[in-house]
Simulated scan of single mutants.
Amino acid sequence: MVSLNPTDPILFVGNGGGSMLAEIVLGMAGVRFRVQVAGWGDNGLESDGLHASNPLGQVPTLVFPNGTVLTETAAIILTIHDSRPDLELVPTGDSGLRPSFWRWLMFINAAIYPSFTYGDYPQKWADQDQEGPLRTRTDQHRKRLMLHLEQQASHPWFLGETFSALDLYIWMLIQWRPKPDWYQTHAPKLYTIAKRVDDLTVTKRVIARNGVKPLP
């Protein structure tokens, strides 16, 4: 629930970026927060306020009125889960699904995310522009990773009948390279999961605020 109240926490975001997932989760939990948009520059996000709270200049960065700073999407998700287990962002302990949830949560954050870290701004890591081999190779590697995730996906959600935060991650990843059309053809199970998330009311609000297109 986006707010203008100065006593509510501030969520630093980059429109269309990974912070969309934090916006969805906070919205699902009914948490009131203020949005502070950081602009995209040649080398990433540019915002004095963001860098003051998070020197790495990454989003999402959630800043509470008492000065507490929470970064990393997974950390925000797990914090929300602690206070709102009814949202089922994490499978219940007796479901038998938690090991799979932890496995694929780590896979997404440790294997897939870095391909964007290095591929989105290759000029930060190598003497080449955005069309150089580093981007090409990280994009190719990401396709292999996403096809591996496709092989593991169940229906109607990634873990089967049980919704979890993994489904939100899948929705977010499909917004980015190699883009939704590729997923429709090569990873239809992931695309179907993302489309279900796309149709959630809270997701539609985040789509509108970020100025991104609904999935076709």
Rank of each mutant, 00 (worst) to 15 (best):
L166E: 09
R142V: 08
I170G: 02
H148N: 14
H141T: 03
A110H: 11
T138M: 12
T138Q: 10
Y169M: 11
K143F: 03
M146E: 05
R144Y: 09
H148W: 13
G132E: 07
A126F: 13
A111N: 13
A126M: 13
L168G: 15
S100E: 06
L145A: 02
P178E: 05
Q151H: 14
D120G: 00
F101C: 11
G160Q: 06
F158E: 07
L147H: 03
R103F: 04
R137E: 04
W125R: 10
L173G: 01
Y169C: 09
D129S: 08
T185D: 10
T136D: 04
E150V: 13
G132P: 03
G119R: 10
Q128C: 05
R144E: 11
H141Q: 01
P180K: 07
R103E: 05
L190R: 01
P156I: 13
D139W: 00
W171H: 07
Y118D: 00
E161A: 15
F163E: 08
R135S: 03
R135Y: 03
D129L: 04
Y121R: 14
D139E: 09
L134N: 00
T136C: 02
I174F: 02
Q130L: 03
H155A: 15
R135H: 10
I108Q: 08
E150N: 14
Q140Y: 05
G132R: 08
E161S: 15
W182R: 09
L105S: 06
D127P: 00
D181N: 01
I108D: 07
D120P: 00
P188W: 12
R142W: 01
P114E: 00
P122A: 08
A153E: 14
P180G: 07
W125T: 09
W102A: 09
K143E: 15
Q152T: 12
F107G: 02
D181R: 11
A111K: 12
W104T: 01
W182Y: 13
Y183C: 13
G132F: 00
Q128D: 05
L105R: 06
R177F: 01
S115Q: 14
L166P: 06
Q152H: 15
G132S: 05
D139Q: 12
P188E: 14
T136V: 02
P178Q: 10
L173Q: 05
Y183V: 02
K124T: 10
W182D: 07
I112A: 12
Y183D: 03
W104P: 07
R142M: 11
Q175H: 11
P180Y: 10
M172G: 09
Q140R: 11
F158M: 03
